[in-house]
């Protein structure tokens, strides 16, 4: 069976819900299946990418230490929504991963090219 193009889309800020963590777990699981896997951060989800997230007071695991493992799992197609970064005063330099920043029309085209969109 040919690999499918699977895009995981994150839409939530990092810690108010377990969603960000559970999305990452799903991405890591999917990385073992030899599919054409990509990851997109939309809207408030760009906050997941911030460097030096200190979660000590939350007693929760920090995404800024968890997300950098993705390239080790061969998850390298990682995208962020440029307009979401702009709206929140963020730039690529603030991010913990080397992501490709896309304009909204590019995101639309990329989504259109996928077989499966898995949103969190």
């Amino acid at each position: 069976m040919n690999p499918k193009k699977i895009m995981v889309i994150n839409t939530h800020a990092p810690y108010g819900k377990a969603t960000a963590r559970e999305s990452l777990d799903a991405v890591l699981a999917a990385s073992a299946y030899d599919q054409d896997l990509s990851l997109l951060f939309l809207g408030d989800a760009v906050f997941q990418l911030l460097q030096q997230q200190d979660t000590a007071a939350l007693e929760a695991k920090s995404l800024s230490t968890a997300l950098p493992v993705l390239p080790l799992y061969d998850v390298t197609a990682i995208y962020a929504q440029q307009s979401a970064l702009d709206a929140r005063g963020l730039t690529r330099a603030d991010l913990v991963l080397d992501v490709e920043c896309l304009e909204n029309h590019q995101i639309t085209a990329l989504m259109d090219s996928q077989d499966i969109l898995l949103s969190f």
Partner: peptide, 21 residues
């Protein structure tokens, strides 16, 4: 079972439909 079953479902279905956020 494990999360691999979600990926397996995505691979083997014509459509994977998500409910909830």
């Amino acid at each position: 079972s494990g999360l691999g079953q979600l990926v397996d479902a995505a691979v083997h279905s014509d459509r994977l439909v998500t409910f909830g956020d």
